[in-house]
Nucleic acid binder design. Structure first.
Lengths: 326, 326
DNA sequence: TTGAAAGCGTTACCAT
DNA sequence: ATGGTAACGCTTTCAA
């Protein structure tokens, strides 16, 4: 690979000068600049990012840690982050923590060793202390880690309330909930929202809540059990779209028609929610916007532009999209 | 961040010695090694990957370039690659080329500048020449770039033939095809397989082929047009699962029942193919195995273990999974 | 068996 | 306005 030295030699100047035109810092004469630029062109020189990073103690890369890349919500988010990052001159390393604390810590180490300049993370095991030790900007997305940290989340509780209330308005009398992973903030919040609406109903018991894990398989299982436990259920609010799709499947397997016998609402608004039959009624998160905002927030933190504290904690709104499953 | 110098000082030895125990290379006395290891533990030292890469001119990272991360096939593949890479001591940078030659080239540059040690790529625009210039091992996955390159693909044509023949065996008399992106190798192969079976039928015309782009939106559109053009179609082979799901949607919108009025087969076997109603009959690719094999192949190339040439071009088998859409 | 020092490709400081 | 050079953290000769 061709280095700055080669360029310097080719242009008949010192490496310092080449470096200056590269970063346009310091003084460079008009014609000297021309000569150097010509040399760069001719040799097709590309600065070595590794050497740069070593010196600067930071790279032009940001890390993105997601819990499960096979959940379609995260590729959509990743896509937004990547687009925005590229546009702002950064690359992204995508890491899949698999909801595993060990793996997560490993990736944190790796990213730090790679001198990433900042990290966007969706995690429930990570602690504020852990993040401080990193000594680089971190933005939490989709899941709150701590009130003090830069964060992009949505109105989970409100969205859940909207969904549940909507089921009521559709005439549902017994509404069950398929909850996401226990311990995950947004799963808890969505569950709270659900309870807020139906918790006071005379029929309500905790057994109307089934425990899934934000994936389809667990949801099918959980829904089956739920519907066998309470055959009178005529409405289900699932904590994410993939689980809602699983719930639809489970309902069919038990011979129940959606939405005639049972109405189902999801959460997320992944593009797949339009792909099912029936199409899924869901609480739409502004996924792309979340990724975009998080990235911009991170970059402005990395570049230490002024950022009012209040600007660093954004709770985005959600909206209910009525489709065929209700 | 704490460096090798700190460790050396703490252990009362030279940096050279610390480096030796780190890489266990060269001679290190038994007790010296102990001292150093203790120091490493106590200081929680982690070698700086950037500095290492700079010296070695290669990092312990591999690149993975996929055309579209929002197509569920690729996250599943990425997951397999990542798992395997980690296990073998490598990290992966995931890049999304968006089927865009420009972006692809940009990522190639970036990866090279980061001294990645190897790349796994799914591309149709990349040329063998382009890859040679990289001077690092590259494994092509899912799409053949050139016969001479290390490659992992599946029996696309055979799979397509199986799918089409299967539709015939189910009694379909007019079978249409939703093709993937024009110019993409596997889309062409799957189309060929389809034609191989029905190309000779008296009813067949080119207009039984509709042009999609491996995503749902384009497929809905294409299927609509196809079914309006040929209302007699009672079977559709879609070139991937997402398009098959789109085809199901389109059929419903035109008031046709699947599988009663029209049978539909997909290709890929993404986990979502089980999620639809009706569940999708599809040609299953061994997705995880593909990612795993590609990664192992790449790593063995990177580490220059002996690799018989014949071992570097693998065409994996596919299998038809019959479910409810046929 | 161990240490000193050169070098990987950059950048930034200090001279000139 | 330009060049020389130390330094970033590491590995690997070369000597001792």
């Amino acid at each position: 690979m061709i280095s700055i030295k080669d360029v310097a030699k080719h242009a008949g100047v010192s490496v310092a000068t080449v470096s200056r035109v590269l970063n346009n810092s310091g003084y460079v004469g008009q014609d000297t600049r021309m000569k150097v630029e010509k040399a760069i062109q001719e040799l097709k020189y590309k600065p070595n990012e590794v050497a740069r990073s070593l010196f600067k103690k930071q790279s032009s890369t940001i890390g993105l840690i997601v819990p499960d890349i096979t959940n379609p919500f995260f590729p959509e988010l990743a896509r937004a982050v990547e687009d925005t990052a590229i546009q702002l001159g950064y690359n992204v390393i995508l890491c899949n923590s698999d909801e595993d604390e060990q793996k997560e810590q490993n990736y944190l180490d790796v990213l730090q060793q790679q001198y990433v300049k900042g990290i966007i993370v969706s995690s429930n095991t990570m602690t504020a202390k852990q993040i401080e030790q990193l000594n680089i900007p971190v933005v939490s997305i989709d899941r709150v880690i701590s009130k003090g940290l830069p964060t992009i989340v949505v109105e989970n509780k409100k969205g859940a309330m909207m969904a549940t209330r909507f089921l009521q308005s559709k005439g549902c009398r017994r509404i069950g909930h398929i909850k996401g992973n226990s311990g995950v903030v947004n799963a808890e919040e969505r569950c709270e929202g659900y309870k807020e609406i139906v918790g006071g109903e005379p029929w309500f018991e905790e057994t109307y809540i089934a425990y899934g894990q934000y994936d389809m398989q667990s949801s099918i299982q959980a829904t089956m059990e739920l519907l066998q436990r309470h055959p009178d259920i005529d409405g289900i609010f699932a904590a994410n779209d993939i689980m809602a799709i699983g719930a639809i499947k489970a309902a069919y397997q038990l011979g129940k028609k959606v939405p005639q016998d049972i109405a189902i609402v999801g959460f997320d608004g992944i593009s797949l929610s339009k792909a099912t039959t029936p199409e899924l009624t869901t609480v739409q998160q502004p996924i792309y916007e979340m990724g975009e905002k998080a990235t911009k927030m991170l970059v402005s933190l990395m570049e230490r532009q002024q950022t009012m504290d209040q600007e660093n904690y954004k709770i985005l709104d959600v909206s209910l999209i009525e489709r065929e499953s209700t």
